[in-house]
């Protein structure tokens, strides 16, 4: 377990999560000016982008070990990794809810939900394409949402779950679905890294 913790850089990951939640609460309502696109009206907040960080660091940790050796590990590493991701999502949700209860406003809930959503997406995508392209895909999600995710009247489109406001049931359902599907893919795609092009990473 100690080796696994060192390989996944768990202390740094917890620090990044804490830092993300803090930065999201402090700076999160700063607006990033995207090019003013016709037929789009909506705010692209810093909080929509910062919440990528824990998921990217999780992927960084997933790729740090010797991937080839890990496929024959005695311990159930996939389960440990999925457990780490779900624990992070739960910790983020707890921090966000506590901050909301302490009066920080609905942005805390948005930050917590987006952290969980990106973690689920990372779990979903990385068994298929490897951890580095998965990080690139994650980073493309906020850009695609900023370019095409708003209706002309300023409400977010249903599929652009990072942009949804705090109480939106669509976004909560999407995040829950992503976490479930991600956990399923990461647990049940056996030996995901035995594809040769992924093992050379």
């Amino acid at each position: 377990m100690i080796w696994w913790c060192k390989a996944r850089a768990v202390p740094q990951l917890v620090a990044v999560l804490a830092g993300t939640v803090a930065a999201g609460l402090l700076l999160g309502d700063g607006e990033l000016p995207v090019p003013a696109l016709h037929g789009q009206a909506g705010h692209f907040l810093l909080a929509h982008v910062i919440t990528l960080l824990p998921a990217v660091f999780l992927l960084y940790g997933l790729g740090r070990g010797d991937l080839r050796t890990e496929t024959v590990a005695g311990r159930f590493l996939r389960g440990l990794d999925v457990g780490l991701a779900l624990t992070l999502a739960a910790a983020g949700a707890t921090c966000g809810s506590l901050a909301y209860a302490a009066g920080q406003g609905a942005l805390a809930l948005v930050v917590a939900r987006n952290i969980a959503g990106y973690l689920g997406l990372a779990l979903l995508v990385h068994p298929w394409i490897g951890h580095r392209p998965a990080a690139a895909v994650l980073a493309a999600v906020p850009l695609v949402c900023s370019a095409a995710g708003w209706h002309p009247d300023g409400s977010p489109r249903p599929w652009a779950w990072p942009l949804h406001p705090a109480g939106s049931p669509y976004a909560l359902a999407a995040v829950g679905l992503l976490l479930l599907a991600g956990a399923g893919c990461a647990l049940f795609r056996r030996h995901p890294t035995t594809a040769p092009h992924l093992l050379t990473g």
Binding site: L32, P33, V56, L59, G63, H131, A136, A139, P142, L143
Partner: peptide, 16 residues
Amino acid sequence: VVAVPLALISSFVLNA
């Protein structure tokens, strides 16, 4: 794994 997302997002922010 960190450089690609960082380059993507910060390049977009710096250009926009």
